[in-house]
């Protein structure tokens, strides 16, 4: 979907002022079109807020129903990897924000490099997440027949891990899409500069990336820090 929005073509419009064309970095997209695209992205992110909101709602309702189990189960998540991943993702947001700035001032090559850094950090995040999944799987924390959780709170703990896998799974899916989009844009930028990949689309990719980051910012305390003291 992001690609669809980002790549919706810039139609020539009667009321488009030609004045913007001489500004570096803005050449490809007239300002009015940029604002349409950015606004469209924000509306899309609003829908995404509600989409993830359901997961947070499910989390809240289930945590309210099984407080002790959530506390116990949360202690079985790997807080070190979770924290590391938060740091990785926050850093990737900084590189993405800088990439957008670079594209805006017409520094295509710098923007491409920063985007490459961003997507590398994204891949690192996914790799760490994958490793965490693997460990949790071998520890029988994956809900289902093989789920095993010692102690009295197994039922609620299974619900916790169900929510854990569903929410982080949807988050990882979004991040993977982001990696794909940013990678594609970085590639086009590196090959053809801002003529090939407009700054306006990069702004949108940046908004999407930051949104996925924000989702994780809330998932981190919700899943890893329920009860550590």
């Amino acid at each position: 979907m992001t690609t669809a929005i980002a790549s919706a073509e810039a139609r020539p419009r009667a009321e488009t002022p030609a004045a913007a064309a001489d500004k570096p970095g803005l050449a490809a997209t007239p300002p009015l079109r940029r604002r349409e695209m950015a606004f469209g992205m924000w509306v899309f992110l609003t829908t995404e807020t509600l989409f993830f909101g359901v997961l947070f709602f499910a989390y809240a309702a289930m945590r309210f129903a099984h407080p002790a189990a959530f506390a116990a189960a949360s202690r079985h998540t790997d807080v070190a990897m979770g924290t590391l991943n938060t740091a990785v993702l926050l850093t990737s947001s900084v590189t993405m924000a800088l990439a957008v700035e670079a594209a805006e001032i017409g520094r295509a090559r710098i923007a491409a490099r920063l985007m490459t850094a961003t997507l590398a950090l994204g891949i690192v995040f996914l790799a760490i997440k994958g490793y965490a999944y693997h460990r949790e799987y071998t520890e029988h924390l994956f809900p289902g027949a093989a789920f095993h959780f010692a102690g009295p709170l197994a039922g609620g703990a299974e619900t916790f891990f169900w929510i854990y896998f569903v929410t982080t799974g949807f988050h990882a899916l979004h991040l993977a899409i982001g990696v794909g989009v940013v990678g594609f844009m970085a590639w086009r930028l590196a090959r053809g500069g801002l003529a090939a990949q407009s700054a306006a689309s990069i702004v949108n990719a940046g908004l999407y990336w930051h949104f996925v980051d924000i989702v994780w910012i809330f998932l981190y305390p919700a899943l890893y820090l329920v009860s550590r003291s």
Binding site: F51, A58, M62, W162
Partner: peptide
């Protein structure tokens, strides 16, 4: 724009729950 994503995710959770038999809607699992 504001309502449809809620339906989408709810149906997704329903589908996952139907396949997995673990989730947040089934009373026999809390």
């Amino acid at each position: 724009v504001l309502a449809t994503p809620v339906l989408g995710m709810t149906l997704a959770l329903l589908g996952i729950e139907r396949i997995w038999h673990i989730g947040i809607f089934d009373p026999s699992l809390g």
